[in-house]
Nucleic acid binder design. Structure first.
Lengths: 149, 149
DNA sequence: TGCAATGTTGACTTGTTTGGTCGAATCAAG
DNA sequence: CTTGATTCGACCAAACAAGTCAACATTGCA
């Protein structure tokens, strides 16, 4: 029940781009440093993310990456599914690509796994990167206030 | 975000034992056949489950396995944790063995992953094997009723 | 006692996934 | 045309998943 580190790196990269803003592209090296991601691996990941239409790039001097959609329109769940595949505790309850499990309709656990999958989806498909950004700004503000008193 | 097949096999094995009842032990071969688990692999799994105190065994003729507690007292989440390790999308939000991630208290995603973990736990730690048994008996009864009308 | 049925143990195998690294190519801007 | 960036595909080591196997210990029963 855990996400691959590749997936977590992808999420962090998207977050960094969201924080950076879309005005000018951000260099791979800067993303890597900010989010502590091995740079060569990040190249691979960003390439994949570009294939999925989540980011776009410009090369050459002044080049880099930026989001192709505003953070409000990117759900964390989308990234997870794109990088790690369907979100499902077992294959047969996957929403996008369910897979036969040999118990055709007689499976004792179908309902149970379905509830697990739903619980996860409810969280990851309702959180956008704009939400994460806001959550952290609020947290930082609260911390500063506390510090000023 | 998926459970290992070993874990799913373990859950199925426990379910089979729960369904069989505690009166007399159930043979590995019977469990394997009923739940479609490779028999050699099931041996390994039951051995592990025995180590965790979930099942007990008797060997020799008339031997086999049985649950060491009634199904009401075994939560699915316990088995999952025992076989697959902590239930957490990323290591730093594990309840039993949290692991430092390098962002000491400055992690942008701590809250998010925590909510994911909680959502999963809420389901798997509230479902016992007695619940699953009941759920399926009800389902079967409903099916029969429908069929009789 | 001896045999057959059963669990026990631990080592082994095989293929896949994870988590990267590297080098050469390509492109854009000044 | 040089400099600073991305791009692409190949490659690699280690860990893990999923399963297999053989030899052994224990029990019930004839």
């Amino acid at each position: 029940m855990s996400v691959s580190s590749k997936c977590y790196y992808a999420i962090r990269a998207i977050y960094a781009l969201a924080e950076h803003g879309a005005s000018e592209p951000m260099r791979i090296a800067d993303i890597a440093q900010k989010e502590m991601i091995p740079i060569r691996f990040l190249e691979v990941i960003l390439g994949q993310l570009k294939g999925g239409g989540f980011v776009e790039s410009r090369r050459g001097a002044e080049g880099g990456y930026r989001l192709s959609k505003p953070p409000e329109q990117i759900k964390v769940g989308e990234i997870m599914r794109y990088v790690d595949g369907p979100i499902a505790p077992v294959d047969c309850v996957s929403q996008s690509r369910p897979k036969e499990c040999g118990f055709h309709g007689e499976c004792h656990f179908f309902g149970f796994w379905g509830r697990v999958r739903q619980a996860i989806s409810d969280v990851v498909d309702q959180t956008t990167f704009a939400d994460l950004l806001k959550e952290n700004r609020d947290r930082k503000k609260a911390f500063v206030n506390e510090w000023m008193i």
